[in-house]
Design a binder for these strands. Structure first.
Length: 916
RNA sequence: GGGCGAUUAGCUCAGUUGGUUAGAGCGUUCCCCUCACACGGGAGAGGUCCAAGGUUCAAGUCCUUGAUCGCCCACCA
């Protein structure tokens, strides 16, 4: 028993030690063949880019709470961790490093580049892992995965090949978002729109063989170089005469047709539009309809290509300026208007994205989305918060094909070979993967072209979108496509917790791919997770989004070093209301650090005094025995406080289970906080102080047994939220000796017999008396050290008896030197030293001088309030409609309240009369 | 252009299915270094629940409209 326990809780050393121990002891490695109901969850793999941030901390905390809770409840619990290779994000990071050396990836070649990324991955991955360990996450490190590891690589190959064979993956020349800096195609999701102050240039296109011209408006004049038509609306009268004629693209000395198309908006700009099929999605579609040529005037790095004639080689925005200048010189620039527009930028590097025509790989989404929609609509997959369900369904309903190819070097390479002879495509024979130089690659390389038999085959250079492999995560991590035992046991996973910001990127794709690819017979067996909980975002103290540019980012590791993981975890939990973001402030963290300290000191108090009690001859060896534990609460001479605390505990347990069941972390955390601090520390311990030191060993034993029992229950309750401090203290308990971890103990379950509403009522009454006495003390500014005599009067004999039975704690906690209980009305019934409820009056006998006007003012205010309240309620009760329609329970309750209020009111009136 | 959410104490936020005196943390006021804890104890103050209508016996909670703020989606050049 450690009496040398520190006065203040210092989390750093303790947390570090336990984090390491949990990791090394491999405590959280469930065996597939073990008995028990499964609770499994896949960690949203952090990107190998960078380090753990506060958002991860929130996510990991919430997952860990549920995982520890379920594990303690007896579930066979798996939390599978891992890291994502984060294709484009990681490549950007390594390219930046290269840039510092003055190098470009093309200069060092694909192989060397990949080597560098792997090197970087090793360092960064280790850092992330060690940070996660420090957070105390109870995941199964023995099952850790990385998306580029051989089994994962194989799963990706298998998925691709299957979807390809099924015709769901196709290749073609389409307009896609292109990042000129990353030099790769992007999916729609990877481009974000940013409002910008732009310009609208009004440009005249002379009509051939005429002095007239047609004016179009454009936000991107440089694309003129690729114009192949001018379009007007079929019903636009003012332009009708031009349809079928030629316009002259003076910059390029080209004649282009004037066409009509429904897609033209008559209201916008001039009602006429230039058509650039190679550089605008809408124009591309129009070009297809009218069989217009597609002139690509831009290079992959967004310079004007040879097709741009005199402007070739110029950077896109420089070309824009030059073109505007030239048009102006030619008198073709009609005007420039300011224009609010939204610019598409690359999510990763913030470069302005160009719509670009290129050959890419796509995945057909509608056939995959349909089962996903059904799963959500049928409730097979539940989504919390509820309102995200509609967003999810809307997106799936309007889904478009997904561009899955990336012109990157970091990722899963597309297992397709192109024939140098006939151009046909040949897929890998199967998904087998081999390891070369420590890196996975496809093993079954085709030897000859499927179509012409030529052996001049080259592998497609593209890699897959990162999210393609992430989309397989819940099953690829469990060994899919093999029918492994892990897969059979732990799939489908029970739950996914992710941020709503990746709902489409990731969550939706897992649902679609899981339903389509895994082998279960029913959707219920194929769905990758049965529940989806979307957490909020951690913001700064004023609710503003954290960002590096604003400089309001907080580093969880720093906070942890300063205040402890438990404090931060608890803060994040207690603030995490479903659907809401979190405004995180240091003050708030401090208050829960104080909570940790409170727990620590409660333990300190117990340990210290227990040592003393033992010295006085108390023996409590039997505390460790489970059958003793099951008997709590242990009776004593007057068992009211014990009955009360166990009744409270039962209620709290019920509330916590209900709250966690529905992801109401804040509610669960609140309940625990107030139980521990309010009920346990402020009342229960205080109440029992004399008994634990009692010379009557029977009395002391009962007190100690209950005290330790409740404390141990509290630690187990708290453990999912504050794993470190609870683990540490638990090992110091006299009940425990050799057990490995509190996290492997059972989560407390309420015994139905604990619920005792009469104990709760009685205790509440005593608390009320004590509160009143303290109030009088404070109001009258009595010497805090002085005890005073008091009278308690009531017409209710059981109340007086209750007070008599609890005379000792009542007097001690209310700081009374004497307590007289009486059925007689107190006289005088007024004065600052009297407080009343409908049931009783409490008077402190004091010789202090009285502030009569002050008292009157206070009483008047109270009188006013009660009067208004009573009137309001009476008129309610007088309303026949109310009496007819309201449930009788409400009416009776209201009547009881009114009569109670009236009694209080009468007392106040008579006291006022007495005073004046 | 669609859609979603928010507006409750000085600040940041809770408030389950409408029901009797609307809560928390921090901050704030007063008293106390009482032998677990000043990261503490005790006692207070502080709110016409954004506005206007409506439904209901009953509205912070449901409906409508408006205001302000925020977010997501969308190929109006």
């Amino acid at each position: 028993m450690p009496s040398e326990i520190a006065k203040a809780y210092e989390p750093q050393e303790i947390e570090r030690r336990w984090a390491q121990a949990w990791f090394e002891e491999k405590l959280y490695h469930p065996l597939a063949e073990a008995p028990g109901t499964v609770f499994s969850i896949a960690l949203p793999p952090p990107n190998v880019t960078g380090s753990i941030h506060i958002g991860h901390m929130l996510e990991h905390t919430q997952i860990d709470i549920l995982v520890r809770w379920r594990r303690m409840q007896g579930f066979k619990t798996l939390w599978l961790p891992g890291i994502d290779h984060a294709g484009i994000a990681t490549q950007v990071v390594v390219e930046r490093q290269l840039a510092k050396e003055g190098l470009k990836r093309e200069q060092i070649g694909r192989e060397e580049f990949e080597r560098r990324v792997w090197q970087w991955k090793a360092e960064s991955g280790d850092k992330i892992k060690s940070q996660m360990i420090r957070l105390g996450v109870s995941c199964d490190w023995m099952r850790e995965r990385f998306t580029l590891d051989p089994p994962m690589y194989r799963a990706v190959m298998e998925s691709f090949l299957r979807l390809y064979r099924e015709g769901l993956i196709y290749r073609g020349r389409y307009m896609t978002n292109w990042c000129p800096r990353c030099q790769t195609a992007l999916s729609d999701l990877e481009t974000v729109h940013e409002p910008r102050e732009g310009k609208l240039w009004f440009i005249r296109y002379p009509i051939k063989d005429s002095s007239e011209f047609i004016t179009v408006a454009t936000t991107r004049p440089e694309t003129m170089l690729g114009d192949t038509a001018v379009a007007v609306h079929p019903q636009a009268e003012r332009y009708a005469k031009f349809i079928g004629k030629k316009a002259i693209l003076s910059l390029m000395n080209r004649e282009i047709p004037i066409i009509s198309d429904d897609a033209v908006d008559r209201e916008f700009g001039t009602g006429a539009v230039k058509v650039t099929p190679a550089h605008d999605p809408a124009d591309f579609a129009m070009g297809q309809r009218h069989k217009l040529p597609e002139i690509d005037i831009m290079t992959p790095d967004a310079r004007i290509s040879a097709a741009g004639g005199p402007y070739a080689g110029m950077e896109r925005f420089a070309a824009r300026e030059k073109i505007v200048e030239d048009l102006k010189a030619q008198g073709l620039l009609e005007k420039i208007a300011p224009h609010q527009m939204s610019v598409a930028i690359c999510d990763r590097c913030k470069t302005i994205v160009e719509p670009r025509l290129s050959i890419q790989w796509f995945c057909k989404m509608q056939p995959l989305a349909k089962p996903a929609i059904e799963a959500v609509e049928s409730g097979l997959l539940s989504i919390t918060p509820e309102n995200q369900k509609k967003i999810f369904l809307d997106w799936l309903t309007n889904i478009r094909d997904w561009c899955i190819s990336r012109q990157l070097w970091w990722g899963h390479r597309i297992p397709i070979w192109h024939c140098g002879n006939c151009g046909a495509m040949t897929p890998a024979r199967d998904s087998r993967v081999e390891v070369v130089n420590g890196r996975a690659q496809i093993a079954s390389v085709p030897e000859k072209c499927e179509k012409c038999g030529s052996s001049k085959l080259t592998q497609d250079p593209d890699v897959l979108d990162t999210w393609f492999s992430s989309g397989l995560w819940p099953f690829s991590t469990l060994g899919w496509p093999d029918n492994t035992e892990d897969l059979r046991v732990f799939y489908p996973t029970s739950l996914l917790i992710s941020g709503y910001d990746i709902l489409f990127f990731w969550d939706a794709r897992m649902v679609m791919l899981g339903l389509h690819l895994t082998r279960g017979e029913t959707p219920a067996q194929r769905i990758p997770f049965r529940k989806l909980y979307l957490h909020g975002i951690v913001r700064d103290p004023h609710g503003i989004k954290m960002s590096k540019t604003r400089g309001n980012v907080v580093d969880p590791v720093e906070i942890i070093e300063k205040h402890g993981t438990d404090a931060l975890r608890f803060t994040l939990s207690v603030m995490a209301a479903p659907g809401g973001d979190i405004a995180l402030s240091e003050e708030r963290i401090l208050s829960y650090r104080a909570f940790a300290n409170k727990i620590w000191n409660a333990a300190r108090f117990l340990f210290f005094n227990f040592e003393k009690a033992e010295a006085a001859g108390l023996k409590l060896d039997e505390l460790a025995a489970p059958e003793i534990r099951a008997k709590a609460p242990y009776s004593a001479a007057d068992s009211l406080p014990h009955r009360w605390i166990f009744s409270r505990l039962a209620r709290v347990l019920e509330q916590i289970d209900a709250a966690l069941e529905e992801f109401r972390f804040h509610e669960a955390a609140h309940v625990i906080y107030h139980f521990f601090w309010g009920d346990f520390c402020d009342w229960y311990i205080e109440w029992l102080k004399p008994q634990i030191a009692s010379e009557n060993l029977d009395e002391a034993r009962a007190a100690w047994r209950n005290l330790f029992a409740v404390f141990e229950y509290a630690l187990r309750l708290l453990h999912p939220f504050m794993p470190f401090i609870t683990e540490d203290l638990w090992h110091r308990l006299p009940q425990r000796s050799g057990a490995k971890s509190i996290s492997l103990e059972a989560f407390p379950k309420a015994n139905p017999q604990w619920t005792d509403s009469s104990a709760e009522q009685q205790f509440a009454f005593l608390q009320e008396i004590i509160g009143m006495a303290r109030n009088i003390h404070a109001e009258m500014k009595l010497d805090p050290k002085a005890k005073v005599a008091a009278d308690l009067s009531s017409q209710d004999p059981p109340l007086l008896e209750l007070a008599e039975r609890n005379r000792e704690p009542l007097m001690r906690l209310a700081r009374l030197s004497e307590l007289k209980t009486t059925r007689e009305t107190l006289s005088p019934a007024s004065g600052p030293a009297v407080r009343s409820t409908a049931q009783f009056d409490l008077r402190i006998r004091s010789s202090e001088t009285r502030d009569i006007p002050g008292e009157i003012a206070k009483l008047k205010k109270e009188e006013e309030r009660l009067k208004k309240d009573i009137e309001q309620k009476q008129s309610r009760l007088a309303d026949s409609a109310f009496r007819e329609r309201a449930p009788s329970k409400i009416i009776e309750g209201l009547e009881a309240t009114v009569s109670e209020r009236q009694r209080e009111y009468e007392k106040i009136v008579s006291r006022l009369a007495e005073l004046s």
